[in-house]
Nucleic acid binder design. Structure first.
Length: 778
DNA sequence: CGTGCTCACCTTTTT
DNA sequence: GGTGAGCACG
């Protein structure tokens, strides 16, 4: 049943390659624990690698060691990571040690990409064809919506998103519809959860499609139902290696255990203190019970930290000590104390961003007793993305180069997904989801009712919707205009399909985008976002060129490809704590340490003590990102969802060991000062801040001051001649990604002061202006 | 069928 | 406070 073993043809190692991998080279400079972790190749090994202890180095050296000592060929190693980025990095670093032999590491990749490869070879055994499509979350949700509609489930009371979430969780735990524990689906649509899950799985099979969770789930079904197939992989994979083991979910864990069960040569590397993905199914328990699952396992602790100063390490260690249920590590360093971790209370969110921005400017300028920083040495790590905005705006104002990490990624953007849907439909007429997505994009007069009708006919006859459409256009079931539109669309589709073989696929893509009217529709829009989208499509066409065939491209897109954003430039990075995992910076800002914000109230509400501990690990991850300086801040007042709220400092602030921390407050509030009222920690229960702030006058002033300072809270401009930065709404838009800031800024000197109104003179044109929105420039 | 309005939503994210 | 989804209306 299996496909031919074409993958055994990886290049054999050449003598010159092996010669490069002299043990003396790659083992040099490892400390005793690291070396032990590299050399313990046989039997189960758990490497507990604390933050900054050289984990990646150990991982890559271990693989290189196994190869260099001839224990296995590159294609006999299974090495799994969570992200493509991690996989790429590992491959590069191994290549650095052992040279081109690393090309043969055929089974180094993410859980999903490896599972997808295995599934391609045995798809028939689980009721799929080997050319199955991989659906992303968007497609998945739309399919579930269809199922709900077909089953007459009230989509208002029982949103598709909710069921999608449930199914995801179930799949994360390795539960097929048959194996769903009783009562699991009870909460959804009057006990119909399980039935709907089953129907959804059937639909996927009909569409010859998988969602992300299925990739692993089908692997489990495959291995459990076909011992011969499993045995084949036992034979193949001589050594297993898993990165970020603390983040594995149950399905991944079961998958690993099945694969490792025969040879037991499995090495898992992780840190229970850095487990921050519990909310998406990660089970810290997997790491806690490793020794039970693999009797005789060797546990190696990497505890020497090479990254941070001892004050930073001390602060982080003290904080994480408050968690129960740890495996326990004692990190140490020979690095000097450095600066203590600075904790500061400020008046409000705006003061916080001002403080951070000022300190960044100072750090970049450097001083006698402080090193001169580059912008890229600095990161701002927030709990949630809504906190990013304040910093972004401040940085725009002060012209501090910065980069917001995250946001919709290239291949998740609507226009890219539309383009892919065209390709998918050209490639396979069975792709109903692709049809649905683009049949009326751009608008060609085939509305929702028509599409629904087609879907219904298709379902009744058990045929793909394109086939149904072909039939329908021959009848007079549709209004004449709709029918013409539909048959034109089908005609276009046929033409593109005919060209698909003859044309290089980037050319095909261009042609489809032109002839479908997609680019024309965008050009007509004239908005800056439409411009961006056109550029994205150009980028797409370019990226396609790197692939031999359309099939290869589409396969890659769904699992592996993410366009590397240029990262080399010198700018401050703004990102979430989750995104910061695995990174490090000389100077790290950790704003928003307020009860309810961080730790997140929702996390505590939903998962209680467990959630709180995960939040604490997040705090630990945050602090340990810093090499030299960490600066924590919290605000006494903060706008959350447009409402002013009073805040209490995070409990994490109090858990920091005093010996490693220096605390101060501008508000007199830290420790209980003026302006505070005791109240519940939930921000939406908080009394609104002073009355003046909710008055219409305030609101108007705020609108007028557009992204500028608080009128009531601005720094006092003492006199004339001060230099200020000015912002105001303007027609010249400043664009960052998809977001547009209507903002113009510049520096001017104050010539007159009247309350909050300043008259400012600008050097260049001799221009004078009265403004009510400004920031003082130091 | 397309547009404008109201209303609920509002952590973290990879594949 | 901002936004996207869903509904009523033209």
């Amino acid at each position: 049943m299996s496909a031919p073993d074409s993958f055994e043809t990886s290049p054999a190692p050449r003598i010159s390659d092996l010669a490069r991998a002299r043990p003396a080279d790659y083992l040099d400079g490892l400390n005793p624990e690291q070396r032990a972790a590299v050399e313990a190749t046989e039997g189960p090994v758990l490497v507990l690698a604390g933050a900054g202890t050289g984990k990646t180095r150990v991982l890559t050296t271990r693989l290189a060691h196994i190869l260099a000592t001839g224990r296995a060929k590159p294609w006999e190693l299974l090495a799994v990571t969570f992200t493509n980025k991690a996989a790429r990095e590992m491959r590069e670093r191994i290549a650095h040690i052992i040279g081109p032999q690393a090309e043969g590491l055929r089974w180094l990749g993410t859980f999903h990409s490896i599972a997808a490869q295995i599934l391609r070879r045995h798809a028939e055994l689980v009721g799929l064809k080997s050319n199955y499509t991989i659906l992303d979350t968007d497609d998945q949700e739309r399919l579930i919506k269809q199922v709900l509609e077909a089953e007459n489930v009230d989509a208002k009371r029982w949103p598709a998103k909710h069921l999608a979430g449930l199914i995801d969780q179930w799949k994360n735990r390795g539960w097929t519809p048959d194996r769903l524990p009783a009562g699991e689906g009870a909460g959804f649509a009057n006990n119909r959860g399980q039935a709907l899950y089953r129907i959804y799985q059937d639909r996927l099979r009909v569409l010859n499609a998988c969602d992300f969770g299925d990739l692993l789930l089908h692997n489990l079904t495959l291995f459990q139902g076909h011992p011969d197939v499993l045995a084949e992989y036992h034979e193949r994979f001589r050594y297993l290696l898993v990165d970020e083991y603390q983040d594995t979910n149950v399905a991944q864990y079961l998958w690993l255990r099945l694969l490792a069960q025969k040879r037991q040569n499995v090495c898992c590397v992780g840190d229970d203190d850095q487990s921050i993905y519990g909310w998406r199914g990660a089970e810290v328990d997997n790491i806690l019970r490793f020794e039970r699952d693999f009797p005789g396992a060797k546990v190696i602790r990497l505890e020497r930290n090479y990254r941070s100063t001892s004050h930073i390490l001390g602060a982080a260690s003290g904080l994480i000590a408050a968690n129960k249920g740890r495996l326990g590590k004692t990190l140490w360093t020979e690095a000097p104390g450095g600066e203590k971790v600075i904790v500061r209370g400020v008046w409000d969110g705006e003061a916080e961003s001002r403080l951070v921005a000022d300190e960044i400017e100072r750090a970049v300028r450097g001083s006698a007793d402080a090193p001169k920083r580059r912008y890229k040495d600095i990161a701002i790590l927030v709990r949630a993305s809504f906190q990013m905005r304040a910093f972004e705006e401040r940085f725009v104002l002060l012209q501090i180069p910065h980069k917001v990490i995250g946001g919709p990624r290239f291949f998740e953007r609507a226009e890219i997904r539309d383009a892919h849907a065209y390709l998918r439909l050209i490639q396979s007429e069975d792709d109903d989801l692709a049809f649905e997505r683009i049949v009326n994009t751009p608008k060609r007069g085939i509305g929702d009712t028509t599409v629904q009708k087609l879907l219904q006919i298709a379902r009744l006859n058990g045929v793909p919707v394109v086939a149904a459409a072909r039939e329908v256009v021959r009848t007079d079931e549709l209004a004449a205009r709709t029918r013409t539109a539909l048959s034109n669309f089908l005609r276009d589709l046929d033409r593109w399909r005919a060209q698909a073989g003859a044309l290089p696929h980037p050319r095909l893509m261009e042609q489809v985008l032109e002839e479908s009217g997609y680019t024309d529709a965008l050009r007509l829009e004239k908005s800056p976002t439409a411009q961006t989208r056109l550029e994205n499509l150009k980028e797409l066409v370019q990226s396609m060129g790197a692939f031999e065939t359309l099939e290869a491209y589409l396969e890659h897109v769904s699992l592996v490809l993410d366009l590397e954003r240029e990262s080399g430039d010198d700018s401050v990075q703004i990102m979430t704590l989750h995104q910061a995992k695995g990174l490090e910076f000389p100077l790290v800002f950790l704003p928003g340490w307020e009860e309810g914000v961080f730790p997140s109230q929702r996390s505590i509400d939903e998962t209680g003590e467990k959630g709180l501990e995960e939040e604490r690990r997040l705090a630990y991850v945050g602090i340990t990102r810093a090499r030299e300086e960490a600066r924590i801040s919290f605000a006494a007042n903060r706008q959350v969802y447009g409402r002013w709220t009073s805040q209490l400092p995070s409990r994490f602030v109090d858990e920091l060991p005093l010996a490693h921390v220096e605390a101060s407050s501008e508000t007199g509030y830290y420790g209980g000062g003026p302006g505070m009222q005791q109240h519940g920690s939930r921000w939406d229960e908080s009394p609104s801040f002073g009355a003046g702030y909710s008055s219409p006058g305030w609101k108007r002033a705020q609108e007028r001051s557009y992204r500028g300072s608080h009128p009531g809270r601005q720094q006092v401009i003492e006199g004339e001649g001060r230099l200020v930065a000015v912002s105001e709404p303007s027609s010249s838009a400043y664009r960052r990604g998809d977001r547009v800031f209507h903002m113009k800024f510049g520096y001017g000197a104050v010539t007159a002061v009247d309350g909050n109104k300043l008259t400012v003179a600008f050097d260049k044109a001799g221009e004078k202006k009265v403004i009510d929105s400004f920031v003082e420039k130091a």
